[in-house]
């Protein structure tokens, strides 16, 4: 350990103070191929230093985002969940790719029939093909889930984050407003708000969810921005003359985003379920629209699923899988953005 690694650029031997020699030494180390191979015992000595997993000094400057992407591509959890989500998106756009029947053409005489060749998931109460309905339901459910989550996350983090960063009257106002929204029972709000609108589309439902959902994220974003803001590195950036935008984007955002990602991905599942509950109460989407939520609530009526569990099982499984995929994705992204976990 005493001997110096021979290929190290040996800063110690060079006169310091930005002289050209020192610079040349640094540059030389960067291009020298041998320097890339971390010799045993050459890694950073700090107790926290992991074994020489570093790709070594490459000429490339790396950043959090490029490192995160580098990590994500190698993370099986990310790959699996991303593929699953890609698949969901594909069948939402083109359900015909894997389902050939019409989800609305049903035969009542086949009500609750079990699985049969060509109809692997069986029939529901109305005699519709469960498989086809699960495939076509993806569009509504995924749209509601993803768009509502995105809307909530963006609105919530921007409003909450700015309130946390700037403080003052804007923060006080926002806090009171979120308190008011927290006081509104979501079901009651749904009944009032959605029954006032005449024709309800997927977008009406999404708008309603964003309207009532953003305070939750805003509160979390505000808290994590406040705690990130207090770190000395934000002060350090300010002392360097950094403006608010830089402090927010470079220093606060990456350090405050993790709890927002976690809450948002978990909320995604509840939003899909919320759409179902609203439909069940008659203020959500109207019958011709196919959605997992609607099918789940239909199936849970009158205990029919006791005799024919498949009518509940398949849409519920699709919903769970979707939620799981997003939670896994959120987890993977959060971990990739934390250099300590590398």
């Amino acid at each position: 350990m005493v001997e110096r690694a021979p290929e190290s650029p040996s800063a110690a031997d060079e006169p310091p103070a930005g002289s050209p020699t020192a610079a040349a030494a640094g540059g030389g180390g960067g291009t020298g191929a041998a320097a890339g191979l971390a010799a045993p015992g050459e890694q950073a000595p700090g107790p926290a230093a992991p074994p020489g997993t570093e790709p070594g000094p490459s000429g490339q400057a790396r950043s959090l985002w490029s490192d995160a992407w580098h990590d994500l591509r190698r993370n099986p959890v990310f790959v699996v969940s991303a593929l699953l989500i890609l698949f969901l998106v594909l069948i939402s756009v083109w359900p015909g790719l894997i389902a050939t029947r019409n989800p609305l053409s049903c035969q009542l005489n086949k009500s609750l029939d079990p699985a049969s060749p060509g109809h692997w998931f069986g029939y529901d109460t109305q005699g519709c093909d469960v498989y086809t309905r699960v495939v076509y339901g993806a569009r509504t459910s995924v749209t509601v889930g993803v768009c509502a989550t995105l809307g909530v996350a963006v609105a919530g983090s921007v409003l909450g984050g700015l309130a946390g960063f700037f403080g003052g009257w804007w923060d006080a106002l926002l806090s009171r407003v979120t308190d008011v929204f927290f006081g509104i029972p979501i079901m009651l709000g749904g009944l009032v708000f959605l029954s006032m609108t005449g024709s309800r589309s997927v977008w009406t439902v999404i708008a309603f969810i964003v309207l009532l959902g953003w305070p939750q994220i805003a509160r979390i974003a505000r808290g994590s921005v406040i705690s990130a803001k207090q770190n000395d590195y934000v002060q350090a950036a300010r002392a360097l003359g950094a403006g608010n935008a830089r402090m927010l984007v470079r220093h606060i955002l990456p350090n405050a985003v993790a709890p927002v990602i976690v809450t948002a991905t978990i909320a995604l599942g509840t939003y899909i379920a919320l759409e179902a509950t609203l439909s069940y109460l008659g203020v959500g989407l109207q019958p011709p629209t196919v959605s997992w939520g609607a099918d789940i609530s239909d199936a849970s009526q009158g205990m029919q699923f006791r005799n024919a569990p498949h009518i509940l099982l398949y849409p519920a499984a699709a919903l769970s899988l979707t939620v799981l995929a997003f939670i896994m994705l959120g987890d993977a992204v959060r971990d990739a953005l934390d250099p300590k976990l590398r």
Partner: peptide
């Protein structure tokens, strides 16, 4: 000079020798 060793990799021999 130097830093205390990582407890995961205490140097062989006398722990202080580096």
């Amino acid at each position: 000079k130097g830093l205390p060793p990582s407890l995961l990799r205490i140097p062989p021999g006398c722990g202080f020798h580096p």
